[in-house]
């Protein structure tokens, strides 16, 4: 269970450029939930994921994971439970290291020791996991990751984010930077890997694709100015279509427009 209470985050706090990125945000996520998050640019989607992962520290509020408060834990400590895939396929892997070195680094999330990292048994295990991805890298374990395509690197990142059995999986528009074919494949791999862990994994996926937002997962939230303005699941979600979401978006725009007019006259 992931519980977020009163989460608030400012950027450039106490300066004339202060921005309220996350505004008293609340969310309860059950084990097994796969939430898609939509919202316009600057709505706070990525900031929310950064706060959960610990890349950014919250100004107020609380994040609890299975009862434990993780709000002020450093990022590397939360990584024991949280797997993450970034929008940029280059961010999730180390280019000058080999495929097997990248994978083995993600396998053990606790304090790393003076054991030799790779041996025959671990290589065999990594090869098996890779072959299940179906991208044909299992025979190139010593190849440098920098030589792979964006799609292959993103597939590796997803494997690295799920292989260690995390409690939470954070996907930040992880198919957006890929071509349509790779994008489809990556989404399929994501769904398969999440399906494998059905019931005990929490997944949060940010997307700009409305169709994807409704088709993937079991719950959808819409964010605007750091708030959670729509939260639908189950039957209610099935009734909703893309048009409805688009209308919600244009309603928000309208409101912004009116507010701007009030201010600017």
């Amino acid at each position: 269970m992931l519980v977020i209470k009163g989460l608030t985050k400012y950027f450039a706090k106490n300066t004339p450029h202060e921005i309220l990125a996350i505004n008293n945000f609340n969310l309860r996520v059950k084990k097994g939930d796969f939430i898609t998050i939509i919202g316009s640019n600057g709505a706070g989607k990525s900031t929310l994921l950064d706060l959960i992962a610990g890349t950014l520290q919250a100004d107020q509020g609380e994040i609890r994971l299975d009862g434990e408060v993780i709000t002020s834990q450093p990022e590397y400590r939360r990584a024991r439970w949280i797997g993450r895939v970034f929008q940029n396929p280059l961010l999730g892997t180390a280019p000058y290291m080999s495929i097997e070195e990248n994978l083995v680094l993600s396998l053990k999330r606790e304090r790393k020791g003076l054991r030799i990292a790779l041996n025959k048994k671990i290589r065999e295990y990594l090869r098996e996991e890779l072959s299940e991805l179906g991208i044909g890298l299992e025979n190139d374990l010593t190849k440098k990751v920098g030589l792979l395509s964006g799609g292959q690197r993103q597939a590796m990142t997803i494997l690295m984010a799920t292989m260690f059995k995390p409690k939470v999986l954070l996907l930040d528009e992880h198919t957006a930077a890929l071509d349509p074919e790779s994008s489809k494949k990556i989404l399929k791999i994501t769904q398969e890997l999440v399906e494998e862990r059905k019931g005990d994994l929490i997944t949060l996926m940010v997307t700009h694709n409305m169709k994807q937002a409704l088709e993937v997962g079991n719950r959808t939230i819409m964010m605007d100015r750091g708030c959670n303005i729509l939260d639908i699941e189950g039957e209610e979600r099935e009734k909703v279509d893309i048009d409805y979401l688009l209308k919600q978006f244009s309603k928000l725009r309208q409101q912004e427009y009116i507010e701007d007019r009030l201010v600017l006259g």
Binding site: Y76, L91, E101, N102, S106, K112, I116, A117
Partner: peptide
């Protein structure tokens, strides 16, 4: 070793290795 590889990764992609714990 595990630590050794983590040091190499720190020079290669710091954000990644931090998000790997």
């Amino acid at each position: 070793t595990e630590i050794g590889l983590a040091i190499i990764a720190t020079g290669d992609n710091e954000q990644m290795i931090r998000s790997l714990g």
